[in-house]
Simulated scan of single mutants.
Amino acid sequence: MGFSLHFMVIDRDQIIDADRAGLIAFLDASRLRIDRRWSQLSNVDTDEPLSFDGSPSDFSLDPLDQADPVTGYLSHATCSPAECAFIFDLCRAGRMMIVNAQGSPMYIGITGIHNLEAFPDPEDTAFVGSGDELFEVLSLGYAGFQEYRARVLRSYEDRT
């Protein structure tokens, strides 16, 4: 797809700090570090940039020791399933929201973490509970995601 995504914590109209302890734990578990020169993520063991499906990613995350609120940015998102799973897990760990300025929904929150009232535009907000759902939202748009979610719920109901 090739568009940009922002990751931050928003409280109505203000950017507030991410969960730094959660981000540290996630990065440690993922064996990743923030390259101080470019703020990009790289592998601790190989010093190679973060990659998805064999392609390097330009995923950036502010240094966790800065005074300003920590945010992240992905300027060339491919929105592959692997990339969406990573984004979801990182955002859940840091309690960050996803801002998709290119389309609808503009704001994507994590189910169980974010409240609709915190988003600047509740009408243009979706909630996801997994990397798969994030992939569906970003690849299909909100209407497509609603159809996907209805299919999943119907298939679950059919099994019970």
Results as ranks from 00 to 15, higher is better:
Phe3Tyr: 11
Phe3His: 14
His6Glu: 11
Val9Asp: 07
Ile10Glu: 06
Asp11Tyr: 10
Asp13Arg: 14
Gln14Arg: 15
Ile15Glu: 07
Ile16Thr: 15
Arg20Ser: 03
Gly22Ala: 00
Phe26Trp: 05
Leu27Gly: 04
Ala29Trp: 00
Arg31Leu: 10
Arg31Phe: 04
Arg31Gln: 11
Arg37Gln: 13
Ser39Glu: 08
Ser39Trp: 08
Thr46Arg: 05
Asp47Asn: 14
Glu48Lys: 14
Pro49Val: 09
Leu50Lys: 04
Leu50Met: 04
Ser51Ile: 05
Ser51Val: 02
Asp53Ile: 04
Ser55Trp: 11
Ser55Arg: 14
Pro56Val: 07
Ser60Glu: 14
Ser60Lys: 13
Ala67Asp: 12
Ala67Met: 10
Thr71Lys: 08
Thr71Glu: 07
Gly72Trp: 03
Tyr73Cys: 05
Ser75Ile: 08
His76Ser: 13
Ala77Gln: 00
Ala77Asp: 01
Thr78Pro: 10
Cys79Thr: 09
Ala85Tyr: 04
Phe86Glu: 02
Asp89Gln: 13
Asp89His: 11
Arg92Leu: 05
Arg92Ile: 04
Gly94Ile: 03
Arg95Pro: 05
Met97Val: 09
Ile98Asp: 06
Ile98Lys: 02
Ala101Thr: 14
Gln102Glu: 15
Gly103Arg: 07
Ser104Met: 11
Met106Cys: 14
Tyr107Ser: 06
Thr111Ala: 13
Ile113Lys: 10
His114Ala: 08
Ala118Met: 15
Glu123Tyr: 09
Ala126Cys: 12
Val128Leu: 06
Val128Ser: 08
Phe135Cys: 12
Phe135Arg: 08
Glu136Gly: 07
Glu136Asp: 12
Leu138Gln: 02
Ser139Cys: 14
Gly141Leu: 01
Gly144Ser: 05
Phe145Glu: 07
Phe145Tyr: 11
Gln146His: 11
Glu147Tyr: 04
Glu147Cys: 06
Arg154Lys: 14
Ser155Ala: 15
Asp158Ile: 08
Arg159Thr: 12
Thr160Arg: 15
Thr160Lys: 15
